[in-house]
C-alpha cells in the first residue's frame, strides 16, 4: 500500500508546513529494481526472477482494460511496484488534469504501488501534448507555480509526490537559479520527495557545461526516495538520455557518491530502447550493488548539502 503520511489532511495544505524529518518520507528502501518492459513480460511471469521491485510507466497501464493490466496484476502479485509517470506535466501552465490524476490514483490503489513519481518538467500546453519532458525556466515565478501544483497533487493523492530531475538540452536566459537550487527550494516549499536520476545529472552537466559534483553537493539528498541509473548516447556535441546500453562508469560513480549521502534509497535501472534479453538487463541492474555498499553511516539530515 501507499504509505500514508502521518498527519491529517488539513496539514498538507498548510503553507507553513515543516519539512519531513523521516528519511525517504518513511517510504521503504526497496533495494535494486528494474523498469518493467513488455519485451520481458513472458520471462518475468514464467520464471519469477529474483528482483527486488519493478517500476512501471504509469501511462502504459492507465488507458487500457486489457492485456497490459492483466500482466501488471500478475507482476504486482509477486513484486513491489512503483509507478513512474511521464504525463503529469507538473510545470505546465494548463490546469491540472484531475481526470488523469484520478486514474493515476486508481491504478496506484489497484497495484498497491509503493509510491508515485513523475518529472520536474512540462509535457504540453493549450491541450496539445508534446510527449516529451520539456525543461522549465528556473525562476521565482516558476517555483511558485510548480510548488502550488505539487501541493495540490499531494493533497489529492494523499501521499508524497516524488519528482525526478530532468535531463535537458536547453537552458533559458530568464533562469535566475540553478536546477539544484530550484529543486532544493521546491522541496522546501512543496515538501515533496525526489527521484535523483544520476544519468540525467551527467547528461545535463555535459550539455550545459556544469560540474555534476557541484550539482550533487547542492542537491537536497534527505529528500531522495529513489535513484535512477540508465545509459545515454554520446553525440560528440551533446549527450542524449536515450536509456540505451549499459550505465557508463562516470554515472555509476555519481550514484556511489550520491548514495553515500542518503540513508539508503531504492535504485532502479531504466533500459528503454534496443532492449536486450532479460538476463542482460537484470545483470546490469545488479551492478548497482557494487556502488551502493557499504551502507551509509552519515545521517540524512546532517548530510543535506546547502
Amino acid at each position: 500500500m501507499i504509505a500514508k503520511m502521518d498527519r491529517p489532511m488539513h496539514s498538507l495544505t498548510s503553507r507553513t508546513r515543516q519539512p519531513r524529518k523521516t528519511p525517504r518520507f518513511g517510504l521503504p528502501n526497496l533495494g535494486v529494481g528494474v523498469g518493467l518492459r513488455t519485451t520481458h513480460y513472458r520471462q518475468i511471469l514464467t520464471e519469477t526472477p529474483p528482483v527486488d521491485w519493478f517500476e512501471i510507466l504509469s501511462e502504459n497501464y492507465m488507458y487500457t482494460e486489457g492485456r497490459p493490466l492483466d500482466i501488471l496484476d500478475r507482476v504486482a502479485s509477486r513484486y513491489p511496484i512503483v509507478m513512474h509517470g511521464v504525463s503529469l506535466s507538473i510545470g505546465s501552465t494548463d490546469p491540472l488534469d484531475w481526470e488523469y490524476l484520478a486514474q493515476l490514483k486508481a491504478l496506484r490503489d489497484r497495484v498497491h504501488a509503493v509510491w508515485v513519481s513523475d518529472h520536474l518538467c512540462w509535457t504540453g500546453v493549450a491541450g496539445r501534448n508534446v510527449h516529451d519532458l520539456l525543461p522549465l525556466p528556473y525562476t521565482e515565478e516558476t517555483l511558485r507555480h510548480v510548488a502550488e501544483r505539487v501541493r495540490q497533487v499531494q493533497d489529492f493523492l494523499e501521499a508524497p509526490l516524488v519528482l525526478e530531475n530532468p535531463s535537458t538540452y536547453v537552458e533559458f536566459v530568464e533562469s535566475t537559479m540553478t536546477e539544484w537550487e530550484f529543486i532544493t527550494a521546491l522541496g522546501e516549499q512543496a515538501d515533496c520527495g525526489l527521484l535523483l536520476d544520476v544519468n540525467n545529472v551527467y547528461v545535463s552537466a555535459y550539455n550545459h557545461g556544469f560540474d555534476p559534483v557541484t550539482y550533487m553537493a547542492g542537491f537536497p539528498m534527505h529528500r531522495v526516495v529513489q535513484f535512477h541509473v540508465a545509459g545515454h548516447t554520446h553525440h560528440g556535441t551533446h549527450l542524449i538520455d536515450s536509456h540505451i546500453g549499459p550505465v557508463s562508469d562516470p554515472v555509476w560513480q555519481l550514484l556511489a557518491s550520491a548514495y553515500s549521502h542518503t540513508a539508503g534509497a531504492s535504485v532502479l535501472l531504466e533500459w528503454d530502447a534496443e532492449i536486450p534479453p532479460w538476463p542482460v538487463v537484470h545483470a546490469e541492474a545488479l551492478r548497482a550493488h557494487e556502488f551502493i555498499l557499504p551502507l551509509p553511516s552519515v545521517a540524512p539530515e546532517a548530510s543535506c548539502a546547502s
Binding site: 505546465s92 501552465t93 494548463d94 490546469p95 491540472l96 484531475w98 512540462w122 504540453g124 500546453v125 493549450a126 496539445r128 508534446v130 520539456l134 522549465l136 525556466p137 525562476t139 515565478e141 516558476t142 507555480h145 502550488e148 501544483r149 495540490q152 533559458f172 530568464e174
Partner: peptide
C-alpha cells in the same frame, strides 16, 4: 483548476510547443 502562472511562463511554453 484555473491556470495560476503569469503570462510569461505560459507564453514561453506556447512558443516552445
Amino acid at each position: 483548476t484555473a491556470a495560476t502562472a503569469s503570462p510569461s511562463l505560459r507564453i514561453l511554453q506556447a512558443w516552445m510547443s
